[in-house]
Design a protein around this nucleic acid. Sequence first.
DNA 1: GTGGTCTAGACCACA
DNA 2: GTGGTCTAGACCACG
Lengths: 121, 121, 121, 121
Amino acid sequence: MNFENHVPIYIQIIDLIKRDIVLGICKPGDKLQSVREYALALKVNPNTVQKAYQEMERMSLAFTKRGIGRFIVEEEAIVLKLKHEMSDEIAHVFIEKMIELGYTSDEILSTVKKMLNGGKK
Amino acid sequence: MNFENHVPIYIQIIDLIKRDIVLGICKPGDKLQSVREYALALKVNPNTVQKAYQEMERMSLAFTKRGIGRFIVEEEAIVLKLKHEMSDEIAHVFIEKMIELGYTSDEILSTVKKMLNGGKK
Amino acid sequence: MNFENHVPIYIQIIDLIKRDIVLGICKPGDKLQSVREYALALKVNPNTVQKAYQEMERMSLAFTKRGIGRFIVEEEAIVLKLKHEMSDEIAHVFIEKMIELGYTSDEILSTVKKMLNGGKK
Amino acid sequence: MNFENHVPIYIQIIDLIKRDIVLGICKPGDKLQSVREYALALKVNPNTVQKAYQEMERMSLAFTKRGIGRFIVEEEAIVLKLKHEMSDEIAHVFIEKMIELGYTSDEILSTVKKMLNGGKK
DNA sequence: GTGGTCTAGACCACA
DNA sequence: GTGGTCTAGACCACG
C-alpha cells in the first residue's frame, strides 16, 4: 500500500485485487482473505479493507456468504471483462490527454513506440 | 469544470491553463485573468482559482507583479518543455499500467492503434 | 434459502416451517427432520438449523423429546393461530408503511386491488 | 432513530430522508444537512450519517458539491418515482407473503379493508 | 471463525 | 465551513 499518494487506500486495495484477478493470481469463485487477515497483511485498519470489499460487491466483483466469507464472483468471463475494461479506460484517458495537448495520431503512436523501446523507466 | 470526478478543481484549472499555453492560446509573458474574473467565468470559488495560481507560481509557471497582476513566465522554452513534460508523464503512466495488467509491448501498440482508428471522441 | 438478502437464514428456516404448518404440509404433532438431515437438505450449516429449532421452541412452536427428536407442538389450534398471527402482523406492517408514505385508505385499497389483478408472480 | 431493532441506523436514516422527500418536506435540489449537523441532531456518530449519505449517492438520490455540501438530486420526477417505488415494493412484499400463507385474493382484500376500518393499531 | 455496524476521534483537501 | 478517509476498538448476529 502506498500511504503517500492521494489515492484512497481502499481504492488501492481494490485495484490490487483486480490486478490479481486479471493476472490469474486469484480466480473466479476463490475465497478472498477475511477482512481481518487481509488488514493484518496490508497493515491497514480492518475497516479499510471492509470498505474495499463492500465496494467490490457493489461493482459485482465479489459477494458475501454470511458467516463464511467473501468470494470473487463465479463468472469466468469476469477476468477478460475486467482486463478489457481496465485497459480500455487507461488507453482512452491516455489518448484523450495527448490529443488535448495537440498531438496527432502519428505523434502519439511514435511516442508510444519510442517509450516501449526505451525500455526502462 | 467537472465537479463530479475526484480531480481537485484547482488542478483542473491548472491543466486548463497549461493546455492553453501548449496550444498557444496564451503565450509566455501574457497576463492571466484576475482571480475574480476567472472565478466568475469558471463559476468557481475565488479561493479555488487563487490556489491554482499559487500552485502555478510554485511550479514556476507564473509570477506576480504586485499591484499589476499575474503573468505567465516569460521564458519561450516553457511551451515545448511543458508539452514534453506532460506528454512524457502521460505516456509513461499509460505504459506502466498496461504492463501491470500483463500486456506485452505489441499488445499495447495494437491497442493504441485500434483506439486511434476507432476515433470516437 | 436466500443467502443474498439480509434476512437471517435461521429466520428464513422458521418461516419455511411455519408456512408448511399453515398450509397443512406438516401437522401438529409431526416430527421435524433432524438437524443434520434438514441442514443437508437445505445446504446450510447444521448450527443454523439448530438455532432455528431452538428459536421455535422458545416460541412454543416445537418441543424436544429427548433421544427421540423434535416435534411440532400438538395443539391443533396452532394452525389457525399461526395463520392469523402472521397475516395480522404482515397486514399491519403493510398498512402502517403505506400511511407513512402519505397514502389514504382509498389509495391503499386500490393499490392492493391493482396488484392482485396485475397478478404477476 | 430506533437503536433497539436490528435495522441498521444508516438505513433508517435513508428511509427517513426518503420519506421526507415523498412527503414534500424536502424538495429536489435542496441541500441536505451537513454530516456533522445531522449527526448531532440524530445523536449518532457522523460516520453513520456519512454512510447513509454515500449510500444515497449510490442510489442517485443525492450528490456532492465538493466543499459546499450535499444536495438532493435535482430531478423533480424523483418524488413520484420514489413514492411509487417504495409503495410498490411494500405492497408487493405484503401480497406475496399473504399468498404464501394460503390466502386468496378476496381474503387479502377483505383483511385490508377490515384493518383500514378498524383504524387504530 | 466470519462479516456488519457503530462510536470516538483524528487528519486532510477543498471551497 | 464542507465532505472523504482512516484508525482503533468495540459489539453483534451468523455459521
